[in-house]
């Protein structure tokens, strides 16, 4: 019996894992890499994509599959920017803070968004509508300042244009919101191929 099973807090929900198709995606990546411990980051990538964030159960599940200590998995997951341990908002707004964007005053965009929605970068509004994040450089410096709203890259923004776009997105009914699953990727990456 593994350690995780004896955990005082509820263990990885085995039942759930059997029925939740998202775990199947994780399993597929695990299998593709032959359950090698070295594949931890690849597995975490898949998990983050499938679930939108990494919760404790998910990390325990991965730790068990790869036969790694829990603290190891947690240490790796928190080392990298990409992995989020908390659920993200319905919409995400990523403002690029690369040098070119900074020189072209991206900080003002962030300040404006922060004032309007009351969230700092890395936070989500209380109603779960919007997550604000910054990126290190999206590599679209020709279009600086750049922001990404729900995976759509927008260039040459000003605080005003940024705000009006954001208000539009947040006000839109949830049904039309697409691809707001997670993360700061420009577009959703392809799922793992078997």
């Amino acid at each position: 019996m593994s350690i995780a099973n004896k955990q005082k807090n509820p263990p990885a929900k085995v039942e759930e894992a059997r029925t939740d198709t998202r775990y199947k995606l994780v399993d597929r990546t695990l299998k593709r890499f032959h359950y090698q411990q070295d594949a931890l980051i690849e597995v975490l990538h898949t998990a983050q994509e499938a679930f939108g964030f990494l919760d404790d159960d998910l990390m325990i599940y991965i730790a068990r599959a790869l036969k790694l200590p829990q603290s190891w998995v947690y240490g790796v997951a928190t080392f990298y920017h990409f992995f989020s341990l908390e659920p993200q908002g319905e919409h995400t707004c990523v403002v690029c803070m690369g040098t070119a964007c900074y020189v072209k005053r991206a900080a003002e965009i962030i300040a404006t968004v922060q004032d309007e929605f009351g969230i700092a970068p890395g936070q989500t509004t209380a109603d779960g509508k919007l997550s604000l994040a910054t990126a290190r450089c999206l590599g679209s410096c020709g279009l600086a300042p750049v922001m990404v709203i729900d995976n759509q890259v927008l260039g040459k923004e000003t605080p005003d244009t940024a705000m009006s776009r954001l208000r539009e997105v947040v006000a839109a009914p949830a049904a039309t919101a697409t691809a707001s699953v997670s993360s700061a990727t420009i577009e959703p990456q392809e799922g793992p191929t078997p």
Binding site: M59, P69, Y74, T78
Partner: peptide, 14 residues
Amino acid sequence: VITGLNRPWGDCVS
């Protein structure tokens, strides 16, 4: 420094 999954040390059975 963390213990287990950043849980209280006392809860870490490892």
